[in-house]
Amino acid sequence: MLDTFVTTLAEAQRAGRRPRRWWSPRLADRVFAGAVAAFAAAIVLLTVLIAWELWRGSAAARHAFGFGFITSTQWDPVAGVFGAAPFIYGTVVTAIVALLLAGPIGIGAAIFLTELAPRAARGPVGFLVEMLAAIPSVIYGLWALFVLVPVVRTHLQPFLAENLGFLPLFSGPKYGVGLLSAALVLTVMILPTVTAISQSVLAAVPRGQREAAHALAATRWEVITGVSLPFARSGIAGALILGLGRALGETMAVTMVIGNRPGISPSLFALGDTMASVIANQFNEADSALFTSVLVEIALLLFVVTVLLNLGARLLVWRLTPHAGKR
């Protein structure tokens, strides 16, 4: 079978044409291209359908509150008055603080693992990092509630208040739970994503380039900053965007430690709430059609915020990497 195929192919090439069979490679190519195009289309369609469904489901809330919903801080289910601002604030603040902390740590760890760590250590450490990514979020939540929160309340918050208390960021009563703890547990949760992807990207830096730099008497630091990081820049940005996505959508772990009190305060010590966690908390027992619709609108806003932050991050990457478009 294979022999005949090879012979036919050889003959055909000699004759300057491709073999004509019903399973001709050209047809197979077309079927394959069609199939993968359908898969890609399915993803687009799914996104559009989700957006459409959220738009439709939130009709009652949109009519009742209009654009004021986004800026209103009122949240009173008994009176039927709702506003999304505290939840948007909580989601964005916790995700961004988490990214600011996890970014440097994750990239640093990836650099260590690819450039500096002894070869024997790379495998096991890389494996452990990937295992961290597989832990269910409720486990992170329980750990945060029983281990992280007491440490934050008795050590971290007093320390920050004493040394940086002049900043409004670190003021107010020290509950332990709140925006700070939520951001910290998110940091731990997105760290494996950022590290693992950055590590793969850095490992893909061509050896020749690195060796060439070393041959030019570059120091290790110069190789890392001058060769590896520029080469991996867009991949690392992708890792950060994925981490941000996980932080924005995380529900269980955040709900358990954020204090679930809608409000906007400049302090990271304050209690807060996020879009994902208010949906998880309220959806089952939402007892009026308007309340349900409000929660769907919050889901729609979460969708919009995620898209906007992703676009922002991507634009930033394009600005930073002139060659990103070519890769």
Binding site: P77, V78, A79, V177, M256, N260, R261, D273, A280, N281
Partner: peptide
């Protein structure tokens, strides 16, 4: 000020699930 329901606007306190 608050009223009664399965979910209310609590005047004070930490919320837990």
């Amino acid at each position: 000020k608050v009223g009664a329901g399965t979910s209310v606007k609590w005047p004070v306190g930490i919320g837990a699930k």
